[in-house]
Computed example of a mutant assay.
Amino acid sequence: MKTLQSQNLTFFIPEPVEDAGANFFDTGISAGFPSPADDFKEQRLSLDEELVKNKEATFYARVSGQSMIGAGLDDNDLLVIDRSLEPENNKIAVCFLDGEFTVKRLRVEKGEVWLQPENPNYPIIKITEENDFVIWGIVTNVIKKLY
């Protein structure tokens, strides 16, 4: 997997593997009382097929920092980013701002754009004509480690 390093994000270019997949039990896992084990049907599941809709436009990036913790994006989480999706108000986007990549929630109102963090300790950024700014892609999924 190819990587590109930025101060706030580390990008990964996915390399699909044919016939890759893990065992998958399509019955749902109860968070309450367990169901009988003989109800499980084993299948194969590819996370690439599940999380990636447009392979040519999809990248992964690892989060560095705490500015988006309110949206569930924690330090070291892996983001799935689709560059083919249109930016919209309230979407979480990876943006290139003044020479650095950042991930923030888009706020678009009356022709103005703001990048809103999901942590009150970080400032809202108003985009102006003076900024070197590109919306690089839209975050579609987040992959977390629980330990």
Rank of each mutant, 00 (worst) to 15 (best):
residue 82 D to H: 00
residue 100 E to V: 09
residue 28 G to H: 15
residue 147 Y to W: 09
residue 75 D to G: 03
residue 97 L to W: 06
residue 33 F to R: 06
residue 47 L to C: 05
residue 124 I to A: 11
residue 59 F to M: 03
residue 102 T to Y: 10
residue 83 R to M: 14
residue 71 A to R: 08
residue 76 N to D: 15
residue 128 T to P: 07
residue 147 Y to A: 09
residue 85 L to S: 04
residue 10 T to G: 11
residue 121 N to W: 07
residue 85 L to K: 07
residue 68 M to P: 14
residue 112 E to Y: 10
residue 87 P to M: 01
residue 102 T to I: 13
residue 51 L to P: 09
residue 76 N to S: 06
residue 41 K to M: 08
residue 24 F to W: 13
residue 3 T to C: 11
residue 136 W to V: 02
residue 33 F to G: 01
residue 133 F to H: 03
residue 108 V to L: 14
residue 103 V to G: 04
residue 120 P to A: 01
residue 9 L to Y: 03
residue 116 Q to C: 01
residue 16 P to I: 00
residue 48 D to W: 03
residue 88 E to G: 02
residue 23 N to G: 02
residue 16 P to M: 00
residue 101 F to K: 07
residue 53 K to R: 12
residue 144 K to P: 09
residue 18 E to H: 15
residue 133 F to N: 05
residue 91 K to L: 15
residue 113 V to H: 12
residue 56 E to R: 12
residue 82 D to M: 01
residue 72 G to C: 07
residue 115 L to T: 13
residue 121 N to G: 03
residue 14 P to F: 08
residue 43 Q to E: 10
residue 101 F to V: 12
residue 123 P to M: 13
residue 48 D to F: 04
residue 45 L to S: 03
residue 136 W to N: 04
residue 102 T to H: 09
residue 93 A to E: 13
residue 66 Q to S: 09
residue 73 L to I: 02
residue 118 E to P: 12
residue 26 D to I: 00
